[in-house]
Amino acid sequence: MAAACVRALGQVGLRVLRSRGGTAGTARLLQPRVPWHGTGRAYGTGGGGVRSKLLSGSPFRGGGRVLGCAFLLGGGFGLYQTVRFSVQQHFAQQETTKAEGSGLQLTLYQYKTCPFCSKVRAFLDYHGLPYSIVEVNPVMRKEIKFSEYRKVPILLVDAGETLQLNDSSVIISALKTFLISKDKTMQQIVSYYPALRSKNEKGKEVVEYSNKYWVMLSEQEVEELYPVKDSRKEEMKWRSWADDWLVHLISPNVYRSPGEALASFDYIVREGKFGTVEGFFAKYVGAAAMFIIGKRLKSRHNLQDDVRQDLYRAVNDWVAAIGKERKFMGGGKPNLADLAVYGVLRVMEGLQAFDDMMDNTKVKAWYQRMETATQRHEGRK
């Protein structure tokens, strides 16, 4: 989500540079010099099935070469440096990537702060499935040049042959099917989620995936996984809600005001260990750009003037759906809807929007239970 905005910002910067006669030397200076890794916090748009086009018709058109440089540095380089460090640590900790008892070797291509990618990590962590991470550069995206699917997350699954799973919800449904099903291979399971290609109103090809919220099980397996009537339908409903509504509340809230946008990028600069000039552009220009983008998202999704109210209402709707008698939507343990909502919300951790959500909604107890269940890998067989 954040990375899609960063990619758009970076591309706008490059286009402005080129259109204004930017030199080759300038372009080389602005290109990232190290791979993308790490844990920074910044937010934008995009996700499992949508690529951001936020800057089409942007008010910054024709802003000149300096503005192009500013966007490229502030939007792209900030996140670039931030996410560098912790993924290196993750690789060191994940030398063995065989999923315990599953025979799968998993590699996740992601943007660290993308809510859709966070959903997949929540699922993998809860089920105790070891995996390697490849952090994708959201501007250049060289890491996923091997794939025709130019979005994240992408999960490569080595199950005798290498299979590519696209779309966060497909990844989760397919892996859940594999973990439960007694007679299906991963190759068979992937075939249950065909890609449906069509063209949107602008004539551009878009890809959606059929059955992406379905866990493909036998009748007996369905009864074992969903012993409560209508629990399967409920899980699918709220998984879809997380993708279609909840994710769109993140960026407008973390960039709600200039101060909050600046605080988000201040975190990026501190964690990224920038030099003076780099830090200035990343913090101030990047924050200003993302504040404006947040306003555009607010208008696009018809949010209230105070976007916090939409976030509070959505989160309280989720808690009300769980009810007072259940610890999780899945009852005594999280189901796929719990993991999806948790994965989306946790990308705000450390920011004012997250603290406000905890203070002004009833989500805290559930969230803390989810955090514990995920950290302890309580879904591991």
Results as ranks from 00 to 15, higher is better:
228 V>M: 03
350 G>R: 14
274 F>G: 06
317 D>A: 14
75 G>V: 10
292 I>H: 14
324 K>W: 02
284 Y>F: 14
326 R>M: 02
355 D>T: 14
354 F>H: 15
110 Q>C: 06
107 T>Q: 09
235 E>C: 12
362 K>R: 12
218 S>I: 08
8 A>Y: 07
380 R>I: 00
213 Y>S: 06
241 W>I: 06
220 Q>A: 11
305 D>A: 15
15 R>L: 10
353 A>N: 10
28 R>W: 08
23 T>G: 13
8 A>N: 15
160 G>T: 03
19 S>G: 10
29 L>D: 08
172 I>M: 14
159 A>R: 03
119 K>H: 01
262 L>S: 07
1 M>C: 07
165 L>A: 07
299 S>Y: 15
43 Y>P: 00
216 M>D: 10
27 A>F: 12
323 G>R: 02
86 S>Y: 04
91 F>G: 04
290 M>Q: 12
106 L>T: 04
172 I>Y: 04
252 P>S: 14
109 Y>T: 02
338 D>K: 04
55 L>V: 12
93 Q>N: 08
234 E>C: 02
252 P>N: 14
246 L>G: 06
261 A>E: 07
227 P>S: 05
306 D>L: 10
32 P>G: 12
224 E>G: 00
355 D>I: 07
125 D>I: 01
77 F>R: 14
323 G>C: 02
264 S>D: 08
134 V>E: 07
236 M>Y: 03
125 D>P: 04
52 S>I: 07
241 W>Q: 05
266 D>L: 05
287 A>Y: 04
77 F>V: 11
190 V>Y: 02
240 S>A: 13
39 T>Y: 01
245 W>L: 09
53 K>C: 06
109 Y>S: 00
297 L>A: 08
77 F>K: 09
339 L>T: 03
212 K>H: 07
144 I>W: 03
362 K>N: 14
232 R>S: 01
13 G>V: 13
44 G>Y: 08
335 N>E: 04
5 C>P: 01
143 E>I: 00
179 L>D: 09
263 A>T: 10
238 W>I: 03
118 S>N: 09
202 K>H: 09
229 K>R: 04
245 W>T: 13
297 L>S: 11
308 R>V: 02
101 G>N: 10
116 F>N: 05
288 A>N: 13
187 Q>H: 09
269 V>M: 07
72 L>P: 00
285 V>E: 09
8 A>P: 10
52 S>L: 11
165 L>R: 09
44 G>P: 09
227 P>L: 07
326 R>G: 00
82 T>P: 00
72 L>I: 06
146 F>H: 14
123 F>P: 01
254 V>P: 05
71 F>M: 15
46 G>W: 05
371 E>H: 10
66 V>S: 12
174 A>E: 08
143 E>D: 02
279 G>R: 08
23 T>E: 13
280 F>W: 15
169 S>Y: 02
223 E>D: 07
377 H>F: 04
376 R>V: 02
79 L>Y: 11
220 Q>M: 03
254 V>A: 13
209 Y>N: 05
148 E>I: 00
346 R>P: 05
150 R>C: 02
265 F>C: 03
196 L>K: 13
8 A>K: 13
18 R>K: 15
